[in-house]
Design a protein around this nucleic acid. Structure first.
Lengths: 188, 188, 188, 188
DNA sequence: AATGAATGAGAATTCATTCAT
DNA sequence: AATGAATGAATTCTCATTCAT
């Protein structure tokens, strides 16, 4: 049961599509969303036309990256729910996401801009639902206050990630900042 | 005693400079830093050449806006230190900044990008020192834990503002998110 | 006795060739000669490569359409010569062609451009000879002046058709315009 | 009393605008409306940006040319009404337009396309009104049948011009073709 | 033979910056 | 000092044509 793509791609096309997305992730992370599609093509080792064949519009490319990254996040969440104590999973996910967001400037930027320019509603919604699961579990385990809502958790998540990414916080600053947030979430 | 500008400007030149900066603040807030210099000129009611006479480069203009906004923030901090209980001033500043950042997308964006692209080190340093004052005062008043550092306070400040701005948090989400942060800063 | 095509085509190849030409006629009629070959392929239900296998160049495709349409016109003329009074056949052909040219924007455009860009000399020549037959018959029947030449009849034919097509003349304007032309051709 | 342009242009800008329009007229006449804006710029001796500063869109440029050429036609009509017998002016205008249309492929093409892609309604309307004047005068002078309408005269005008232009009719073919049309317009 | 992905040379348009007026 | 026209490099996107599958 294919989840995403209607038409199976030819082997070479699939390879190129993947290369392009990887290149785009890199390029946009390094140079921001204003980076040129041409550079993405170069980095992917294909001609510019190939990029536009796969993603008819630059915005389509950005959307595709975002969908992909969000999907990865959701699957991270699922892994965590299986592998950790329910009370810890939210904190673990939070910490992880911040730690990796350096590599994922794009996700974060796009997450932050989610409402505005690009539209990837279901993907964002899915992530939100996943995090919601973590939050409820943590609240039932008693590691997070009952009066904290999903909205503010998501807000803090995005905000801290974006801060971490854009300002390039070193590891210890990440830790100390998260300590404050976690203390704010804890009961009492 | 002019601190920054070497040459006193002719009255009309000064007026134009001010108009341009005001227009630029608006335009970049609305359209992001990719907005065109031409539009800034239009909004300011001057010709494009005039903008470039005052700010030889688009980056110079952005830097100037940032310096200006940071200076305003610093003076806000000073006002607060005089007008509120020492224990509350930090929270008040924090809340204020978040609330107003909607209008100041530019500051926040620029603050966030401070380290990277533009360089306005002294301005940022000055703000950091001011906030440091608020923090120490709050810690002495016992409203903020002693083991919280200035770095993470600044980090949270920027992160939350940026989140608020870019995602357009409604007022109640701002409140609830700040509640978590403040709880995290409070002793015990 | 195949006049034009050297190699007999496999059945499926012939079918594709026909489909492509039909699609091309439609597409170029609707969108003008700037329409993309890709769209022709889509409309024909074949892949783009197939179009280029049959017509190595876009110009070749246009030429082929034109040849085909001209051939149809010639056969129309022949039908008319058999089925109408000699004195009326030219007028009937003229009227018919104008009336149908809406559907045949391509022919007309190509007929008009005949001399310039594309070269389909024999096809045009053949049509001209056919119309010449109609003209002589009409002159002998006394419905057209003797001092009118084939060149100007062809010229008027093309001109009026093109006018009708490009400006989208309604039926009554076609009628009234042709009335003037026919009056001009009539003796006295 | 300025008829067309709201803002007076600087001398150099006006010079460039004129050069661009002249170049565009040439280029589009030679290569059709698909010719590149870059070539217009080259021919005009300006940079590509200058063309787009004056005409923000390629379509704007085409429209401007058309307006200009139509205006010239209208003024030709006015001149003729003053300088010839009322009964002849329509024929003279017709003949002139056809003769010059070789140089004015653009006008004709645009006139023909008037309804469809570009919109220059008032300009076309003005021409139509002018020609209407010639027609009425000719009918009153008895050189044109009373039952001929303006619509078909315009239709023939456009059609014959376009034919002449696109197929490159030599002078004698023009003459002979017009002879038929004029005979069709004459009383009896 | 057919497919459809890849190529890459344009084409239109934008915009920071320069410079004549 | 101000004006605003000119420049031209850069960017997004299109499309005829080629070529691996």
């Amino acid at each position: 049961m294919p989840i995403d793509d209607a038409k199976p791609l030819r082997a070479d096309a699939a390879r190129n599509r993947a290369r392009i997305m990887a290149a785009a992730e890199q390029v946009f992370s390094e140079r921001g969303p204003a980076a040129s599609t041409e550079e993405v093509a170069n980095r992917a080792g294909v001609a510019i036309g190939t990029v536009f064949r796969h993603f008819p519009t630059k915005a389509d490319l950005l959307r595709a990256i975002m969908k992909d990254l969000l999907a990865r996040l959701v699957s991270d969440v699922d892994d965590l729910r299986r592998g950790s104590e329910p009370g810890d999973a939210l904190f673990a996910f939070f910490t992880n996401l911040v730690a990796h967001s350096a590599r994922q400037k794009t996700v974060i930027d796009l997450l932050a801009a989610a409402g505005s320019e690009l539209n990837v509603p279901d993907a964002v919604g899915t992530l939100e639902r996943s995090v919601g699961g973590l939050l409820r579990a943590a609240q039932q385990a008693g590691t997070v206050r009952r009066d904290v809502g999903l909205a503010e958790v998501m807000a803090l998540l995005v905000a801290v990630c974006q801060g971490a990414v854009q300002a390039g916080w070193p590891a210890d600053l990440q830790t100390r900042t998260l300590a404050v947030v976690f203390a704010g979430l804890a009961p009492r």
